[in-house]
């Protein structure tokens, strides 16, 4: 990198009088800026005040946002200059790309990019860019927000479902990928279509069979749940408990299903079990148990198979024993 030359030593800035930072006699929380930082900001204030439209002003905004990437006023002024000076949008995108890899969570960079895309109307390199950002942090919420925006805006749906699958295969606990999957399905297929729901719930159940205690996959199932698929879900639950035992997310999902089915007595059984195994949420499950008021007493064959599997591993009290025997009857 070239040595940074102070602005007051640069020939082209000789005519500008920098505006120093506001510094009262009795300051509060004053920051000890470095001389370089302070000078860049002082010159920026000067061009902002004079509303200078020039190449040098544009370059100065580059220095300003490099020094302080969240400095939205400089971004705002830069946008203004971009239009006035007819700066190349592609160059500007490249500038953002470079900055984004060092400041992946900066709000301005991501939203400015949307504006540039609105002007450019050509998203051909955008998914590649987002992929690069997700390479750095696969859960970067800004990157996902932009991805959804650009996909929606330019109809880039084609490979997106496959993309979510790849990410989920690589890391089944990448909740952003599950969330993206829900977004794609909602926007490209009919979520009221039973076939779609069945396919997606099976997708999540397959993942769960491999990694049963994955909150992301269980939440996906709960998000898509329909009554007609309750037995399918319960069958997989039986299989999982048989092989690997229960886990809190499985039990939470079962409680959710019994609540939807209004099978209050069975919901109570699950709430009781959750109070002992999901100990951190013990008081929540206690409260939930009091609201388990469904009166549906019917049991499917799969319920009868499931309930005996829900006996706590630890010895349980006679009150709970009574509950289990009632639930099984």
């Amino acid at each position: 990198m070239d040595e940074w030359v102070p602005l007051h030593e640069r020939k082209e800035w000789q005519d500008v009088v920098p505006i120093p930072e506001f510094s009262p006699k009795a300051p509060i929380a004053p920051i000890k800026y470095s001389p370089e930082f302070d000078e860049i900001m002082s010159y920026f204030r000067a061009i902002l005040q004079s509303q200078e439209v020039s190449e040098r002003a544009f370059k100065l905004t580059t220095e300003t946002v490099n020094a302080s990437p969240g400095f939205y006023t400089a971004w705002h002024y830069r946008r203004f200059l971009l239009d006035k000076l007819n700066i190349s949008i592609v160059d500007e995108l490249n500038f953002l790309t470079e900055l984004a890899s060092n400041h992946p969570k900066n709000y301005q960079i991501w939203y400015y990019r949307r504006e540039l895309m609105n002007k450019l109307q050509n998203p051909s390199s955008e998914l590649e860019f987002v992929n690069m950002m997700l390479e750095i942090d696969e859960k970067n919420i800004h990157a996902w927000g932009y991805r959804q925006w650009v996909i929606q805006k330019f109809n880039l749906w084609e490979d997106e479902l496959k993309f979510t699958d790849e990410l989920i295969q690589r890391d089944p606990r990448n909740n952003s990928a599950w969330s993206e999957r829900y977004f794609v399905i909602s926007k490209t297929e009919n979520l009221n279509d039973f076939e779609v729901k069945m396919r997606e719930i099976s997708y999540a159940l397959n993942s769960i069979e491999e990694i049963p205690a994955n909150e992301s996959a269980w939440n996906y199932i709960r998000g898509l749940y329909v009554e007609e698929l309750s037995d399918e879900i319960k069958k997989v639950m039986v299989k999982i408990i048989d092989n690997k035992g229960y886990n809190v997310y499985l039990l939470q999902c079962l409680e959710f299903i019994y609540n939807k089915q209004r099978k209050g007595d069975l919901e109570t059984v699950v709430c009781k079990l959750l109070q002992s195994v999901d100990y951190i949420r013990k008081s929540y499950w206690k409260w939930r148990e009091t609201s388990a008021k469904g009166k549906n007493l019917s049991r499917s064959a799969i319920d009868l198979q499931l309930i005996p599997m829900l006996i706590p591993k630890q010895p349980f009290s006679s009150v709970m024993a009574l509950y289990y025997s009632q639930a099984l009857s």
């Binding site: 470095s34 930082f37 900001m41 020094a67 302080s68 969240g70 400095f71």
Partner: peptide
Amino acid sequence: SLPKSVSTLNS
């Protein structure tokens, strides 16, 4: 007084 390490909080 704040150190220069928090300079970017100037926004």
